[in-house]
Design a protein around this nucleic acid. Structure first.
Lengths: 221, 221
DNA sequence: CATTGAATTTAGTTGCGGCTAATTTCTTTT
DNA sequence: AAAAGAAATTAGCCGCAACTAAATTCAATG
Protein backbone atom coordinates (compact mmCIF):
# COMPACT_ATOMS: atom_id res chain seq x y z
CA UNK A 1 0.00 0.00 0.00
CA UNK A 2 1.67 3.19 -1.09
CA UNK A 3 0.46 6.71 -0.49
CA UNK A 4 -0.45 9.22 -3.16
CA UNK A 5 1.57 12.38 -3.55
CA UNK A 6 -1.25 14.36 -2.03
CA UNK A 7 -1.28 12.07 1.00
CA UNK A 8 2.43 12.57 1.43
CA UNK A 9 2.18 16.32 1.07
CA UNK A 10 -0.42 16.48 3.81
CA UNK A 11 1.59 14.33 6.18
CA UNK A 12 4.65 16.45 5.64
CA UNK A 13 2.68 19.64 6.17
CA UNK A 14 1.13 18.34 9.37
CA UNK A 15 4.56 17.39 10.62
CA UNK A 16 5.92 20.84 9.93
CA UNK A 17 2.97 22.55 11.58
CA UNK A 18 2.80 20.30 14.61
CA UNK A 19 4.65 22.83 16.87
CA UNK A 20 2.15 22.68 19.73
CA UNK A 21 0.75 19.24 19.26
CA UNK A 22 -2.34 19.87 17.20
CA UNK A 23 -2.79 21.25 13.71
CA UNK A 24 -5.90 23.11 12.59
CA UNK A 25 -7.67 22.52 9.31
CA UNK A 26 -7.09 26.11 8.34
CA UNK A 27 -3.35 26.05 8.97
CA UNK A 28 -3.10 22.94 6.85
CA UNK A 29 -5.23 24.38 4.08
CA UNK A 30 -3.21 27.59 4.06
CA UNK A 31 0.10 25.82 3.92
CA UNK A 32 -0.93 23.54 1.09
CA UNK A 33 -2.78 26.33 -0.70
CA UNK A 34 -6.04 24.40 -0.88
CA UNK A 35 -9.52 25.32 0.33
CA UNK A 36 -10.46 24.20 3.86
CA UNK A 37 -12.96 21.57 2.71
CA UNK A 38 -10.20 19.88 0.72
CA UNK A 39 -8.14 19.63 3.89
CA UNK A 40 -11.09 18.27 5.86
CA UNK A 41 -11.63 15.59 3.27
CA UNK A 42 -8.01 14.52 3.24
CA UNK A 43 -7.82 14.52 7.01
CA UNK A 44 -10.61 11.99 7.05
CA UNK A 45 -8.79 9.78 4.60
CA UNK A 46 -5.58 9.92 6.59
CA UNK A 47 -7.51 9.21 9.78
CA UNK A 48 -9.06 6.16 8.12
CA UNK A 49 -5.54 5.02 7.26
CA UNK A 50 -4.56 5.50 10.90
CA UNK A 51 -1.90 7.98 9.96
CA UNK A 52 -3.47 10.80 11.94
CA UNK A 53 -5.97 11.16 14.73
CA UNK A 54 -8.65 13.72 14.20
CA UNK A 55 -10.75 15.48 16.79
CA UNK A 56 -13.47 17.24 14.81
CA UNK A 57 -13.51 21.02 15.16
CA UNK A 58 -10.30 20.79 17.10
CA UNK A 59 -7.40 19.52 15.10
CA UNK A 60 -5.31 16.73 13.73
CA UNK A 61 -2.26 14.93 15.04
CA UNK A 62 0.15 12.47 13.48
CA UNK A 63 0.15 8.91 14.78
CA UNK A 64 3.46 7.15 15.21
CA UNK A 65 3.09 5.59 11.80
CA UNK A 66 2.12 8.92 10.28
CA UNK A 67 5.09 10.66 11.79
CA UNK A 68 7.43 7.98 10.58
CA UNK A 69 6.17 8.41 7.04
CA UNK A 70 6.42 12.19 7.29
CA UNK A 71 10.03 11.82 8.38
CA UNK A 72 10.76 9.51 5.45
CA UNK A 73 9.49 12.15 3.06
CA UNK A 74 11.45 14.87 4.80
CA UNK A 75 14.54 12.66 4.64
CA UNK A 76 14.01 12.29 0.92
CA UNK A 77 13.53 15.99 0.50
CA UNK A 78 16.62 16.99 2.41
CA UNK A 79 18.84 14.34 0.93
CA UNK A 80 17.82 15.36 -2.57
CA UNK A 81 18.32 19.00 -1.75
CA UNK A 82 21.78 18.23 -0.50
CA UNK A 83 22.57 16.10 -3.52
CA UNK A 84 21.36 18.68 -5.99
CA UNK A 85 23.44 21.45 -4.48
CA UNK A 86 26.57 19.47 -3.58
CA UNK A 87 26.80 17.19 -6.58
CA UNK A 88 24.92 18.90 -9.38
CA UNK A 89 25.69 22.42 -8.26
CA UNK A 90 22.16 23.80 -8.18
CA UNK A 91 21.33 26.91 -6.21
CA UNK A 92 19.56 26.58 -2.87
CA UNK A 93 16.24 27.90 -4.03
CA UNK A 94 16.25 25.84 -7.21
CA UNK A 95 17.20 22.73 -5.26
CA UNK A 96 14.30 23.21 -2.90
CA UNK A 97 11.79 23.45 -5.71
CA UNK A 98 13.18 20.35 -7.39
CA UNK A 99 13.19 18.40 -4.16
CA UNK A 100 9.48 19.04 -3.73
CA UNK A 101 8.95 16.83 -6.75
CA UNK A 102 11.78 14.36 -6.24
CA UNK A 103 10.83 13.50 -2.68
CA UNK A 104 7.81 11.60 -3.94
CA UNK A 105 9.53 9.40 -6.48
CA UNK A 106 12.80 8.60 -4.76
CA UNK A 107 13.28 4.85 -4.32
CA UNK A 108 15.03 3.32 -1.34
CA UNK A 109 17.78 2.24 -3.67
CA UNK A 110 18.54 5.69 -5.06
CA UNK A 111 18.12 7.22 -1.65
CA UNK A 112 20.83 4.89 -0.36
CA UNK A 113 23.15 5.70 -3.26
CA UNK A 114 22.76 9.42 -2.82
CA UNK A 115 23.28 9.09 0.91
CA UNK A 116 26.47 7.14 0.30
CA UNK A 117 27.71 9.55 -2.36
CA UNK A 118 27.29 12.39 0.12
CA UNK A 119 28.87 10.52 3.02
CA UNK A 120 25.65 10.17 5.00
CA UNK A 121 25.14 13.85 5.71
CA UNK A 122 23.24 14.87 8.84
CA UNK A 123 22.36 18.38 7.67
CA UNK A 124 21.01 19.72 4.42
CA UNK A 125 22.45 22.89 2.85
CA UNK A 126 20.16 25.14 4.91
CA UNK A 127 21.27 23.52 8.13
CA UNK A 128 18.13 21.46 8.69
CA UNK A 129 18.64 18.02 10.19
CA UNK A 130 18.22 15.07 7.85
CA UNK A 131 16.18 12.30 9.51
CA UNK A 132 17.86 8.91 9.63
CA UNK A 133 16.59 5.85 7.83
CA UNK A 134 14.95 4.80 11.10
CA UNK A 135 13.03 8.02 11.37
CA UNK A 136 15.14 9.70 14.02
CA UNK A 137 15.79 13.39 13.77
CA UNK A 138 18.02 15.75 15.73
CA UNK A 139 16.25 18.32 17.88
CA UNK A 140 17.75 21.78 17.66
CA UNK A 141 17.33 24.45 20.29
CA UNK A 142 18.48 27.38 18.27
CA UNK A 143 17.00 30.85 18.46
CA UNK A 144 15.16 32.69 15.72
CA UNK A 145 17.14 35.72 14.61
CA UNK A 146 13.95 37.71 15.10
CA UNK A 147 14.00 36.93 18.79
CA UNK A 148 17.56 37.75 19.56
CA UNK A 149 17.57 40.75 21.87
CA UNK A 150 21.09 41.71 20.92
CA UNK A 151 24.49 40.12 21.02
CA UNK A 152 27.79 39.97 19.32
CA UNK A 153 28.55 36.35 18.88
CA UNK A 154 25.96 34.57 16.80
CA UNK A 155 26.45 31.81 14.30
CA UNK A 156 23.80 31.09 11.71
CA UNK A 157 22.83 27.47 12.03
CA UNK A 158 19.79 27.12 9.84
CA UNK A 159 17.79 29.00 7.27
CA UNK A 160 14.28 27.73 6.79
CA UNK A 161 13.64 26.79 3.20
CA UNK A 162 9.96 27.39 2.75
CA UNK A 163 10.23 30.44 0.52
CA UNK A 164 12.36 30.24 -2.61
CA UNK A 165 12.58 33.98 -3.16
CA UNK A 166 13.61 34.68 0.40
CA UNK A 167 16.12 31.87 0.26
CA UNK A 168 17.86 33.39 -2.73
CA UNK A 169 18.07 36.75 -1.01
CA UNK A 170 19.49 35.31 2.20
CA UNK A 171 22.19 33.50 0.33
CA UNK A 172 23.09 36.68 -1.54
CA UNK A 173 23.74 38.67 1.59
CA UNK A 174 25.72 35.83 3.13
CA UNK A 175 23.20 34.72 5.70
CA UNK A 176 24.06 31.05 5.37
CA UNK A 177 24.79 28.30 7.91
CA UNK A 178 28.14 28.95 9.51
CA UNK A 179 28.09 32.70 8.97
CA UNK A 180 29.00 34.90 11.93
CA UNK A 181 26.47 37.53 12.84
CA UNK A 182 26.28 40.32 15.37
CA UNK A 183 23.04 42.10 16.20
CA UNK A 184 23.76 45.79 16.70
CA UNK A 185 20.31 47.19 17.18
CA UNK A 186 17.30 45.02 17.88
CA UNK A 187 13.84 45.36 16.41
CA UNK A 188 12.72 48.97 16.31
CA UNK A 189 9.40 50.57 15.59
CA UNK A 190 10.01 50.16 11.86
CA UNK A 191 10.44 46.44 12.36
CA UNK A 192 14.04 46.37 11.29
CA UNK A 193 17.10 44.68 12.64
CA UNK A 194 20.55 46.20 12.32
CA UNK A 195 23.16 43.55 12.06
CA UNK A 196 26.59 42.67 10.84
CA UNK A 197 27.13 39.61 8.70
CA UNK A 198 30.75 38.54 8.47
CA UNK A 199 31.73 42.15 9.15
CA UNK A 200 29.29 43.68 6.63
CA UNK A 201 26.56 45.92 8.02
CA UNK A 202 22.99 45.10 6.97
CA UNK A 203 19.52 46.32 7.77
CA UNK A 204 17.19 43.43 7.90
CA UNK A 205 13.39 43.06 8.03
CA UNK A 206 11.86 41.38 11.02
CA UNK A 207 9.76 39.09 8.86
CA UNK A 208 12.61 37.22 7.16
CA UNK A 209 14.50 37.12 10.44
CA UNK A 210 11.92 34.67 11.70
CA UNK A 211 13.28 32.07 9.32
CA UNK A 212 16.91 32.34 10.36
CA UNK A 213 18.05 30.31 13.35
CA UNK A 214 21.20 31.20 15.20
CA UNK A 215 23.23 29.71 17.97
CA UNK A 216 23.98 32.33 20.58
CA UNK A 217 27.55 31.78 21.62
CA UNK A 218 27.34 34.55 24.21
CA UNK A 219 25.08 32.52 26.41
CA UNK A 220 27.10 29.37 26.21
CA UNK A 221 30.15 31.16 27.60
CA UNK B 1 0.57 24.66 -20.37
CA UNK B 2 2.25 21.51 -19.21
CA UNK B 3 1.18 17.96 -19.92
CA UNK B 4 0.12 15.42 -17.35
CA UNK B 5 2.14 12.30 -16.78
CA UNK B 6 -0.51 10.27 -18.52
CA UNK B 7 -0.34 12.56 -21.55
CA UNK B 8 3.40 12.14 -21.67
CA UNK B 9 3.19 8.39 -21.32
CA UNK B 10 0.84 8.17 -24.26
CA UNK B 11 2.99 10.38 -26.47
CA UNK B 12 6.03 8.30 -25.67
CA UNK B 13 4.18 5.08 -26.36
CA UNK B 14 2.87 6.36 -29.67
CA UNK B 15 6.38 7.37 -30.63
CA UNK B 16 7.74 3.94 -29.82
CA UNK B 17 4.97 2.17 -31.70
CA UNK B 18 5.02 4.40 -34.74
CA UNK B 19 7.09 1.91 -36.82
CA UNK B 20 4.84 2.02 -39.87
CA UNK B 21 3.36 5.44 -39.51
CA UNK B 22 0.10 4.75 -37.74
CA UNK B 23 -0.61 3.36 -34.30
CA UNK B 24 -3.77 1.45 -33.45
CA UNK B 25 -5.82 2.00 -30.35
CA UNK B 26 -5.25 -1.57 -29.33
CA UNK B 27 -1.48 -1.45 -29.64
CA UNK B 28 -1.46 1.66 -27.50
CA UNK B 29 -3.80 0.17 -24.93
CA UNK B 30 -1.71 -3.00 -24.74
CA UNK B 31 1.55 -1.17 -24.33
CA UNK B 32 0.23 1.09 -21.60
CA UNK B 33 -1.72 -1.72 -19.96
CA UNK B 34 -5.00 0.13 -20.07
CA UNK B 35 -8.35 -0.85 -21.55
CA UNK B 36 -9.00 0.25 -25.15
CA UNK B 37 -11.67 2.82 -24.22
CA UNK B 38 -9.13 4.56 -22.00
CA UNK B 39 -6.81 4.85 -24.96
CA UNK B 40 -9.58 6.16 -27.19
CA UNK B 41 -10.40 8.83 -24.64
CA UNK B 42 -6.82 9.96 -24.30
CA UNK B 43 -6.31 9.99 -28.05
CA UNK B 44 -9.15 12.46 -28.31
CA UNK B 45 -7.58 14.71 -25.73
CA UNK B 46 -4.22 14.62 -27.44
CA UNK B 47 -5.88 15.30 -30.78
CA UNK B 48 -7.64 18.32 -29.27
CA UNK B 49 -4.22 19.53 -28.13
CA UNK B 50 -2.94 19.07 -31.68
CA UNK B 51 -0.30 16.66 -30.51
CA UNK B 52 -1.65 13.79 -32.61
CA UNK B 53 -3.90 13.39 -35.59
CA UNK B 54 -6.57 10.77 -35.29
CA UNK B 55 -8.39 8.98 -38.04
CA UNK B 56 -11.24 7.14 -36.31
CA UNK B 57 -11.18 3.37 -36.68
CA UNK B 58 -7.81 3.69 -38.33
CA UNK B 59 -5.13 5.00 -36.06
CA UNK B 60 -3.21 7.81 -34.53
CA UNK B 61 -0.11 9.68 -35.57
CA UNK B 62 2.11 12.21 -33.84
CA UNK B 63 2.15 15.75 -35.15
CA UNK B 64 5.46 17.59 -35.30
CA UNK B 65 4.76 19.14 -31.93
CA UNK B 66 3.74 15.80 -30.51
CA UNK B 67 6.87 14.11 -31.77
CA UNK B 68 9.05 16.83 -30.38
CA UNK B 69 7.50 16.38 -26.95
CA UNK B 70 7.85 12.61 -27.17
CA UNK B 71 11.52 13.06 -27.97
CA UNK B 72 11.97 15.36 -25.01
CA UNK B 73 10.57 12.71 -22.73
CA UNK B 74 12.73 10.03 -24.29
CA UNK B 75 15.74 12.29 -23.88
CA UNK B 76 14.90 12.67 -20.22
CA UNK B 77 14.46 8.95 -19.84
CA UNK B 78 17.73 8.01 -21.48
CA UNK B 79 19.75 10.71 -19.82
CA UNK B 80 18.46 9.68 -16.42
CA UNK B 81 19.10 6.05 -17.20
CA UNK B 82 22.66 6.87 -18.14
CA UNK B 83 23.13 9.03 -15.08
CA UNK B 84 21.78 6.43 -12.71
CA UNK B 85 24.03 3.69 -14.04
CA UNK B 86 27.18 5.73 -14.66
CA UNK B 87 27.10 8.03 -11.67
CA UNK B 88 25.03 6.29 -9.03
CA UNK B 89 25.97 2.77 -10.07
CA UNK B 90 22.49 1.33 -10.44
CA UNK B 91 21.89 -1.81 -12.48
CA UNK B 92 20.38 -1.50 -15.96
CA UNK B 93 17.03 -2.89 -15.07
CA UNK B 94 16.71 -0.83 -11.91
CA UNK B 95 17.77 2.31 -13.78
CA UNK B 96 15.07 1.76 -16.37
CA UNK B 97 12.35 1.46 -13.77
CA UNK B 98 13.53 4.59 -11.98
CA UNK B 99 13.78 6.54 -15.21
CA UNK B 100 10.13 5.82 -15.93
CA UNK B 101 9.31 8.02 -12.97
CA UNK B 102 12.11 10.56 -13.25
CA UNK B 103 11.45 11.38 -16.89
CA UNK B 104 8.30 13.21 -15.88
CA UNK B 105 9.75 15.47 -13.22
CA UNK B 106 13.15 16.33 -14.66
CA UNK B 107 13.59 20.09 -15.05
CA UNK B 108 15.54 21.65 -17.88
CA UNK B 109 18.07 22.79 -15.34
CA UNK B 110 18.78 19.36 -13.89
CA UNK B 111 18.68 17.82 -17.33
CA UNK B 112 21.45 20.20 -18.38
CA UNK B 113 23.52 19.43 -15.29
CA UNK B 114 23.24 15.71 -15.76
CA UNK B 115 24.07 16.04 -19.43
CA UNK B 116 27.17 18.06 -18.56
CA UNK B 117 28.21 15.67 -15.80
CA UNK B 118 28.06 12.83 -18.31
CA UNK B 119 29.85 14.74 -21.07
CA UNK B 120 26.80 15.01 -23.32
CA UNK B 121 26.43 11.32 -24.06
CA UNK B 122 24.82 10.26 -27.32
CA UNK B 123 23.90 6.74 -26.23
CA UNK B 124 22.31 5.37 -23.10
CA UNK B 125 23.67 2.23 -21.41
CA UNK B 126 21.60 -0.06 -23.63
CA UNK B 127 22.95 1.57 -26.76
CA UNK B 128 19.84 3.57 -27.59
CA UNK B 129 20.39 7.02 -29.04
CA UNK B 130 19.72 9.97 -26.76
CA UNK B 131 17.78 12.68 -28.59
CA UNK B 132 19.39 16.12 -28.58
CA UNK B 133 17.90 19.16 -26.90
CA UNK B 134 16.53 20.16 -30.30
CA UNK B 135 14.70 16.91 -30.70
CA UNK B 136 17.05 15.27 -33.18
CA UNK B 137 17.76 11.58 -32.87
CA UNK B 138 20.19 9.29 -34.62
CA UNK B 139 18.67 6.66 -36.90
CA UNK B 140 20.21 3.23 -36.56
CA UNK B 141 20.08 0.55 -39.20
CA UNK B 142 21.13 -2.34 -37.10
CA UNK B 143 19.73 -5.84 -37.39
CA UNK B 144 17.73 -7.72 -34.83
CA UNK B 145 19.63 -10.72 -33.54
CA UNK B 146 16.52 -12.76 -34.30
CA UNK B 147 16.88 -11.97 -37.96
CA UNK B 148 20.51 -12.75 -38.41
CA UNK B 149 20.76 -15.76 -40.67
CA UNK B 150 24.22 -16.65 -39.43
CA UNK B 151 27.58 -15.01 -39.25
CA UNK B 152 30.71 -14.80 -37.25
CA UNK B 153 31.38 -11.16 -36.78
CA UNK B 154 28.59 -9.43 -34.95
CA UNK B 155 28.82 -6.65 -32.43
CA UNK B 156 25.94 -5.97 -30.08
CA UNK B 157 24.93 -2.36 -30.49
CA UNK B 158 21.72 -2.06 -28.58
CA UNK B 159 19.54 -3.99 -26.17
CA UNK B 160 15.98 -2.76 -25.99
CA UNK B 161 15.02 -1.83 -22.48
CA UNK B 162 11.33 -2.51 -22.33
CA UNK B 163 11.46 -5.55 -20.09
CA UNK B 164 13.31 -5.30 -16.80
CA UNK B 165 13.55 -9.03 -16.24
CA UNK B 166 14.88 -9.73 -19.69
CA UNK B 167 17.32 -6.87 -19.33
CA UNK B 168 18.84 -8.36 -16.22
CA UNK B 169 19.25 -11.71 -17.90
CA UNK B 170 20.90 -10.24 -20.98
CA UNK B 171 23.43 -8.39 -18.88
CA UNK B 172 24.21 -11.55 -16.93
CA UNK B 173 25.15 -13.53 -20.01
CA UNK B 174 27.21 -10.67 -21.36
CA UNK B 175 24.89 -9.60 -24.16
CA UNK B 176 25.66 -5.92 -23.75
CA UNK B 177 26.54 -3.17 -26.23
CA UNK B 178 30.03 -3.75 -27.55
CA UNK B 179 30.00 -7.51 -27.00
CA UNK B 180 31.20 -9.68 -29.85
CA UNK B 181 28.81 -12.36 -30.95
CA UNK B 182 28.88 -15.17 -33.48
CA UNK B 183 25.75 -17.02 -34.58
CA UNK B 184 26.56 -20.68 -35.01
CA UNK B 185 23.18 -22.14 -35.79
CA UNK B 186 20.21 -20.02 -36.71
CA UNK B 187 16.64 -20.42 -35.56
CA UNK B 188 15.59 -24.06 -35.55
CA UNK B 189 12.21 -25.71 -35.10
CA UNK B 190 12.47 -25.24 -31.35
CA UNK B 191 12.91 -21.53 -31.84
CA UNK B 192 16.42 -21.43 -30.47
CA UNK B 193 19.56 -19.69 -31.56
CA UNK B 194 22.98 -21.14 -30.90
CA UNK B 195 25.53 -18.43 -30.45
CA UNK B 196 28.82 -17.51 -28.93
CA UNK B 197 29.14 -14.43 -26.77
CA UNK B 198 32.71 -13.32 -26.24
CA UNK B 199 33.81 -16.89 -26.79
CA UNK B 200 31.19 -18.47 -24.51
CA UNK B 201 28.62 -20.77 -26.12
CA UNK B 202 24.97 -20.02 -25.38
CA UNK B 203 21.59 -21.28 -26.46
CA UNK B 204 19.22 -18.42 -26.82
CA UNK B 205 15.46 -18.11 -27.27
CA UNK B 206 14.14 -16.45 -30.38
CA UNK B 207 11.84 -14.20 -28.42
CA UNK B 208 14.50 -12.29 -26.49
CA UNK B 209 16.66 -12.15 -29.60
CA UNK B 210 14.16 -9.74 -31.10
CA UNK B 211 15.28 -7.13 -28.60
CA UNK B 212 18.98 -7.34 -29.32
CA UNK B 213 20.33 -5.28 -32.21
CA UNK B 214 23.65 -6.13 -33.78
CA UNK B 215 25.89 -4.59 -36.38
CA UNK B 216 26.89 -7.20 -38.90
CA UNK B 217 30.52 -6.60 -39.61
CA UNK B 218 30.57 -9.38 -42.21
CA UNK B 219 28.44 -7.37 -44.56
CA UNK B 220 30.39 -4.20 -44.22
CA UNK B 221 33.57 -5.90 -45.33
C1' DC C 1 -26.85 33.50 28.93
C1' DA C 2 -27.86 34.63 24.32
C1' DT C 3 -25.81 36.11 20.28
C1' DT C 4 -22.38 36.83 16.92
C1' DG C 5 -18.58 35.46 14.27
C1' DA C 6 -15.03 32.54 12.85
C1' DA C 7 -13.57 27.92 11.99
C1' DT C 8 -15.03 23.57 10.48
C1' DT C 9 -17.63 20.34 8.26
C1' DT C 10 -21.25 18.71 4.94
C1' DA C 11 -23.38 18.77 0.42
C1' DG C 12 -22.91 18.78 -4.14
C1' DT C 13 -19.88 19.63 -8.52
C1' DT C 14 -15.78 19.33 -11.51
C1' DG C 15 -11.75 17.39 -14.21
C1' DC C 16 -8.75 13.61 -14.83
C1' DG C 17 -7.87 9.02 -16.05
C1' DG C 18 -9.14 4.79 -15.33
C1' DC C 19 -13.00 0.89 -15.86
C1' DT C 20 -17.08 -2.44 -17.96
C1' DA C 21 -20.90 -3.12 -20.99
C1' DA C 22 -23.05 -1.99 -25.16
C1' DT C 23 -22.86 -0.24 -29.71
C1' DT C 24 -20.90 0.94 -34.03
C1' DT C 25 -17.81 0.36 -37.83
C1' DC C 26 -14.71 -1.83 -40.69
C1' DT C 27 -12.94 -6.04 -42.77
C1' DT C 28 -13.00 -10.54 -43.97
C1' DT C 29 -15.15 -14.67 -45.06
C1' DT C 30 -18.74 -17.45 -46.99
C1' DA D 1 -23.61 -9.30 -51.28
C1' DA D 2 -24.66 -10.78 -46.65
C1' DA D 3 -23.07 -12.29 -42.40
C1' DA D 4 -19.62 -12.94 -38.91
C1' DG D 5 -15.93 -11.35 -36.25
C1' DA D 6 -12.65 -8.16 -34.61
C1' DA D 7 -11.46 -3.51 -33.57
C1' DA D 8 -12.89 0.92 -32.12
C1' DT D 9 -15.96 3.91 -30.13
C1' DT D 10 -19.82 5.50 -27.13
C1' DA D 11 -22.31 5.39 -22.81
C1' DG D 12 -22.19 5.35 -18.20
C1' DC D 13 -19.62 4.62 -13.99
C1' DC D 14 -15.77 5.01 -10.21
C1' DG D 15 -11.97 6.99 -7.21
C1' DC D 16 -9.15 10.83 -6.33
C1' DA D 17 -8.43 15.46 -5.02
C1' DA D 18 -9.70 19.71 -5.85
C1' DC D 19 -13.63 23.45 -5.73
C1' DT D 20 -17.98 26.64 -4.09
C1' DA D 21 -21.99 27.29 -1.34
C1' DA D 22 -24.49 26.07 2.63
C1' DA D 23 -24.85 24.28 7.17
C1' DT D 24 -22.96 23.37 11.65
C1' DT D 25 -20.28 23.92 15.78
C1' DC D 26 -17.43 26.15 18.93
C1' DA D 27 -15.78 30.18 21.32
C1' DA D 28 -15.97 34.71 22.61
C1' DT D 29 -18.36 38.83 23.62
C1' DG D 30 -22.13 41.80 25.05
Amino acid sequence: MSLSEANQDYLKAIYKLRAHGTVTTQALADRLKVAPPSATAMIKKLAALQLVTHTPYYGVQLTQTGEKIALEIIRHHRLVETYLTEVLGLGWDQAHIEAERWEHILSEEVEARMDAALGSPTRDPHGAAIPTLNGEIAVDDWTRLSEVSGGENLIVRRVSDENAELLGHLREIGLVPGAHVAVQRAVGAEGTLHLEIEGQAHVFGIAPARFVYVETLDETL
